[in-house]
Design a protein around this nucleic acid. Structure first.
Lengths: 225, 225
DNA sequence: ATATGTGAAAAGTTTCACAGCC
DNA sequence: GGCTGTGAAACTTTTCACATAT
């Protein structure tokens, strides 16, 4: 009366619900390490080894991974391929996503060519800007478009995600337009917190200057100790 | 026998010690909002207003700010100029920092031109790469140098911070060289966790693909609810 | 012997709620 | 009236420690 074959389909419990937010932020890091290990030809890995690579506690790795099922084998470790697949499925990156970029300035252009996005299944399908000098120029293989064509392109390509790399002043209007065009997630590089109360829009903010300041703080405060 | 004028120098207790890490990550955000408010011509602000702008709880803002002294005035709020100065002093950004960039590829070039760094007092003094095709080319006003001149330039300019935008494979060697050249802090954009145990090197990792994956997860998991 | 999965304890963080000051 | 600063409660996250499986 064994209920399930357990190598092939581990009991994938709790899908999505009750995963601590702190765990989610580490999931992508686990994935990155697993992909690297796979490339190196390994098949199994232990929680302690993952922890060491990421500077974490081994118990934390095990608890994180156990949130969405039992993927390890006691006495042995985790199967790299299986765990990779499982995490991708949890994170929603077991499929590809169409992404647009808004803001083809300095930073936007660099982001558009960033290989890491493509490697994780994010496909850039269009680039927008509001400056007449930039519209019509090329960014990689794409021609920069006016925001006028936003709605059309978003629905035609079923785009869900947008990367925003516009000046702080423009971020609020841009996010409003993105939302009404049907975008559901924004990766925001503009140095403002985009708040859209009572909206289903999800925003992840990345402020590069903030990160550098966090570094300065850490350096200043490690000096003494 | 009043000990101190208190508008000018509020009781700045606890400098650095026992500031929660969670608070530190928000400090730079408070600073960004305060600078924006100052530019808008405001002189005072309330915890509730800051909280609203950043999507936080007002009590959290007050507790964060109270970690390093009493800067508010009951019934009134916080003095924007004074609080800005105080946070900058805590974060170590009340002075300017010399920064170098390693990796003048796609992302590195964009980061070198990012205005936000300069605006917060981070001055890019040199750019390095290890590719012969890139060495000698210009990035903004700077000529890309070989890593051979790293030690010399770091000590000549008293550089403490480095921005690393090299491929994952190179990150470990680069950080090793940076450390031995005297760098004490690295802002790492390479998609690996750079671990240097028993070292005083401070590293802040920013993985752009990881951020996009976090967004995908958040979008997938907001759908249902 | 080795490594996972997990209750329970410890540590850290957020929020409440209100005294104290303007 | 308004708003800060902060004890105490509530909640979250991490770590310990060990039963359990190979």
């Amino acid at each position: 009366m064994e209920p399930l074959a357990n190598e092939k389909s581990p009991n994938q419990t709790n899908r999505s619900q009750n995963i601590p937010v702190a765990t989610v932020t580490r999931l992508a890091l686990y994935l990155r390490e697993l992909q690297q290990l796979k490339r190196a030809g390994l098949q199994r890995i232990q929680s302690g080894a993952i922890a060491k690579r990421l500077g974490l506690n081994d118990s934390q790795v095990r608890r994180d991974l156990s949130c969405f099922g039992q993927f390890g084998q006691r006495g042995v470790g985790y199967n790299i391929a299986g765990l990779t697949q499982a995490i991708q499925s949890i994170m929603g990156t077991d499929r590809s996503w169409n992404v647009i970029l808004v803001g083809a300035g300095n930073l936007g252009r660099a982001l558009s060519g960033y290989r890491g996005f493509d490697q994780q299944g994010f496909r850039l399908v269009a680039v927008f800007d509001c400056s007449d000098e930039i519209i019509g120029t090329k960014v990689g293989k794409l021609v920069v478009k006016s925001l006028d064509s936003l709605d059309e392109i978003v629905s035609a390509n079923q785009v869900e995600l947008a990367i925003v790399a516009v000046p702080a002043e423009a971020a609020s209007i841009v996010s409003q337009r993105l939302e009404s065009a049907g975008i559901t997630g924004i990766l925001n590089f503009a140095p403002v917190t985009v708040r859209r109360p009572n909206s289903s829009l999800t925003v992840v903010d990345v402020d590069l200057a903030v990160e550098l300041q966090r570094l300065a703080f850490a350096v200043v405060n490690s000096k003494g100790s």
